[in-house]
Design a protein around this nucleic acid. Sequence first.
DNA 1: CGCCTCTTTGAGCTCAATCAAGGTGTGTGG
DNA 2: CCACACACCTTGATTGAGCTCAAAGAGGCG
Lengths: 235, 235
Amino acid sequence: MSKESSLKAALGEVSNFPIFANLKMSEIEALCAMGEITVTPHRQALFSFGHNANFFGIVLSGAYKLAKPTPNGTETIIYFSTPGDVVAAFIMPQPEPKYPVSAIAMGTSRFLKLPKSTYLNAWMKNPDIILRIQNLLSTRVAQLHNYKVLTKSTLSTKVASLILDILQKTNSQDDDLVLPLPLTRKEIADSLGASVEAVIRVMSDWSKSGIIETKDHQIKVLKLDKIIELINSAT
Amino acid sequence: MSKESSLKAALGEVSNFPIFANLKMSEIEALCAMGEITVTPHRQALFSFGHNANFFGIVLSGAYKLAKPTPNGTETIIYFSTPGDVVAAFIMPQPEPKYPVSAIAMGTSRFLKLPKSTYLNAWMKNPDIILRIQNLLSTRVAQLHNYKVLTKSTLSTKVASLILDILQKTNSQDDDLVLPLPLTRKEIADSLGASVEAVIRVMSDWSKSGIIETKDHQIKVLKLDKIIELINSAT
DNA sequence: CGCCTCTTTGAGCTCAATCAAGGTGTGTGG
DNA sequence: CCACACACCTTGATTGAGCTCAAAGAGGCG
């Protein structure tokens, strides 16, 4: 498939995403100018922490974890980006932007890569988009605040809260309670600042009592009420 | 002093703040339209978590802690706002904004209160300002990320990191290493998600070894190198 | 003077980190 | 095709950082 036609196909995909909701096709085209589709295999980095940021973009399919290296060689996961998420947009206007995190594919994933110039020329000129980017940012901030509030809570509360966060973000229908991304225990641990072993202990208990079910890194919530209970029962 | 003349005086104050740097006085006037100066005594709330957000503004003097209540009745401090900080601006464009945190004065503080309408009519129409608000937000996000990276570190690392954060934000000259706001041990604890006692133990040790000095809730750093060392030695 | 906030120190306990060891599935190169 | 590396999951035992509880002193304020 040529670059042009694949981009055209991508336009159809992105037009359904909330970030572009209610925009004319011509506007969307302008916002995706110079776009290129990148396919990232499992565990490969789309961009790396500290590198010069010359592109941003939109997740088309799969998922990426946004992670930041810690002083001691490990990494902390800041955010899980799923299809429709705009990534690295808000650092574009900085004079010499560097990526504040690495983006690593969780399973084969597709990304619509847009050059910094498109942000400066199209995104920043569009009042609707600016507003949406700002809302997106403030949602992110709110989530980080929530995390901070949880610091003193027990690990099971944190895991429950993470699962709920991910569920709420994507699944609007309450009937299908499968997390839309393949999550390893290690990733949950890295995301919560906990050890893998501790996460496993919490989740094994839940599996045994039939609260969740794991199959092939897909987590399914069977008793949502129990999860919610765990969050609220925080002492 | 009449409302008008006090506002006029405030304009002189705010014109030095980075958010308004290099703007014409006429522009600043437009951005501060309908502004009112509020004086908040020690421990009083400027606004409260969950309430309807009909104003935002700029800290003129003193300081405010932005705190969010936790499920169990206590509170987590999200941010310390010092003079020049713009507060609650980015939630203004939301349809029915609620304050995501409470703002509580630390010592008698002064605040330039601007109605939501000023944000919608003036701030959002000014490209420079939008950009600066967005940068401000992304700085905040970066700080929250840093906090997340620290979760697994020891408490002394966290305290050291907090002190450094506050120092870097305000004091550009390295000669005067006094934190620009009155901080109690409890506030440090609430900000880091730790217990007061633990924070006291860490800081007493530092006082004894001459790394810091506390007088009347003013913290002075005597050996900055030791503080930095503590952060980097995070195993 | 009594109340309130803040600081301090001590003692015991708990949650989760760390260390250790073993199991499974997948991809890879000889 | 097999062996080996690698990523991930699991369970058990030990340990320690920091939480909780308790008690008390010090400054500020009405």
